[in-house]
Design a protein around this nucleic acid. Sequence first.
DNA 1: TCCGAAAACTTATCGGCGTTACCCCTTGCG
DNA 2: CGCAAGGGGTAACGCCGATAAGTTTTCGGA
Lengths: 207, 207
Amino acid sequence: MTTPHRPRNPRGHGKRLRTEILTAATELLDTGGDERTVTLRAVACRVGIAPPSIYPHFLDQSAIMLAVVRQSFAELTHRLRAAAAAVVDPRQRLHALCRAYLEYAQKYPQRYRVMFGDLWHPVVDGGVTPDEVTTMGAEAMRLLVDSLAACVASGHSASRDPAVDAIALWLGLHGLAHQRAVASWYPWPADITQRVAIPLARLVNAR
Amino acid sequence: MTTPHRPRNPRGHGKRLRTEILTAATELLDTGGDERTVTLRAVACRVGIAPPSIYPHFLDQSAIMLAVVRQSFAELTHRLRAAAAAVVDPRQRLHALCRAYLEYAQKYPQRYRVMFGDLWHPVVDGGVTPDEVTTMGAEAMRLLVDSLAACVASGHSASRDPAVDAIALWLGLHGLAHQRAVASWYPWPADITQRVAIPLARLVNAR
DNA sequence: TCCGAAAACTTATCGGCGTTACCCCTTGCG
DNA sequence: CGCAAGGGGTAACGCCGATAAGTTTTCGGA
């Protein structure tokens, strides 16, 4: 480009550009309604560099998306942890977890879609291994299992196998979150969250 | 191309090529693990025509995918109808519906992902309108609502609002179907289907 | 029988994309 | 002041979707 160049980073801070690329990609993903808008050239343009200057920091374009996914998982986990820590009552804590999960998906629908979209599939290439994906969501799942187990212990849940029922509960939350991210225009019932979460968590004395 | 050309279609049967394009795109989607492999050129090559020869039949590449989605919805609905018609007992019928739904998603994971992936989003362009998407899944949802209502009538379900609970049930099925399509390697519990469907359908006397 | 218009399809081309190979300029240490 | 190495740019390749402009085949009507 003939446009004025951005100031070059000093010697030891080359990795500063990496985070700039990452945030630029995240912003592009959030604003553009499609992950196809997160093009390598668009990211480079937004950062203010030439397209090939990305390669010293990311192996290829999918590596950028993978980094976005990793970062998004970290933030989601952080939010879930914060939501769980703010409440002591087991039942309220489980509700808070579900609410935080769905709020994240609703606030960043594109990110959520990509988090649970592909990338999982390139099983063989230099992509991401199943183990790594499992690790990313492991702590979030643990929060859910623990919270459900606490509900069982306090008599709020009739679950006989919290570890498995937590997966079922998460699948319900995921179905709702994903579908709301994809079709936010659909007239979702107002109480759809409770309709999904309460039965799956096997909560008793629903209110 | 210099390769021998396929025989040209006779005068009135130009639309025969349309279905060939459609099946080629579907096959590419099923075999290639990524909808990005369903490239306009790859479809044309598989059919045996030049890339621009697709345009008389489809407005653009997304129109092909949309046609694949439409066809897939039709087939899914057909299977659900057949599954429901094969059973009379309300509870068994609901189970058959859920099973057929999940089997379809497991048999054609790529198609399922695309069906409930994007395309929904291009709200404004010549893409697909929310109304049309809703219409595609309308009959399938009706089957589910009717089946759940029948379970309520026969005392098998404790649902108080089958129309809403059917949505919740579908969300759970979708979460499971989608996640299994994306991460088939995950060690899903053997009885995960029941763990999701039975509570959401509010079935009593579970077995 | 033949002819010309329309249908069916091709070739050529454009701009954008991911990716690679290679070049330049600055930085900061000795 | 010299000069390696890091930080980033330029040029180019092949593939993609899409358009424009031909080229071949078909077939009803004279």
